[in-house]
Amino acid sequence: MAIPAVAVYSFLYLYPAIQNLAYSFERWDGVTKPQYVGLHNFTYLATNDDLFRKIVGNNIRFTLIVVIFQTALSLLFATFLLKNTKTTILLRVIYFFPTILSSVSVGLIWTFLYNPNFGFLNASLKAIGLNKFALNWLGDSKYSLYAIALTQVWFHTGQMVIIYVAGLQQIPADLYEAAEVDGATRWQQFKNITWPMALPTTAVVVAYTTIQSFRAFDLVYSMTQGGPLNSSDLIVTSIYNTAFSSFKYGYASAQSIVLIVVVLLVTWLQRRTLRIDYGVK
């Protein structure tokens, strides 16, 4: 019964993955015959390619920012929206809304908002006297990566709020009641009950956010295409450009192998630090 699934999966997932590994040992422009170069692509990536190192750095910074802010924000909002009242349900529905939009739409909308000269964000900042913060968001290599990270947080926080609400609602209410009887402050309740009890959910949120942020190709492509001066390039956009505008397929494959390693490493680190076994047992 699993035959159709196995067939499609092997042919279009596992087989390409293996081929990818094979390509990464080759120099290939897509036209002439591929040439076996051993580990050359990897050593070049590691020792000679400053741009790629910068891009890996970008990606790690991007992931860290998105994971930290998105997790903190969604946990905060989830504690606010825990009870099922009309208002909280409405707010959850609103917060969740961006999740259903396509990332291209989100990218294009935010390009409009971020416009430095007439964009809504700067106009609003100036209107409330924060002229200092009216930046050239996407056009300045100092801010572009963070501006995209902010969009990513806007995009997916609502989804994480829902996951957290589902998780937090599992915490027995009498724990809080007992704490209140003991005179525990809101912060103490959070620290001693909510945080430890929500740890499994946090692990899920963090893992999912991490994977999402390594896949943020669409946002970057529709907002900055990696610019200015590669300041917002991520590993996936680099793979795409190396393959489809520079026609270095072998080299791009090597980059994607690096991506796999980085993702696995980050996931493993998270599992270690959060000490939680989620998903696969």
Binding site: T111, N115, P116, N117, N136, L138, G139, D140, P228
Partner: peptide
């Protein structure tokens, strides 16, 4: 060029 020209798109 306009101010913040590096953020000036070909839509604007």
């Amino acid at each position: 060029f306009p101010p913040n020209v590096t953020g000036y798109t070909d839509v604007v």
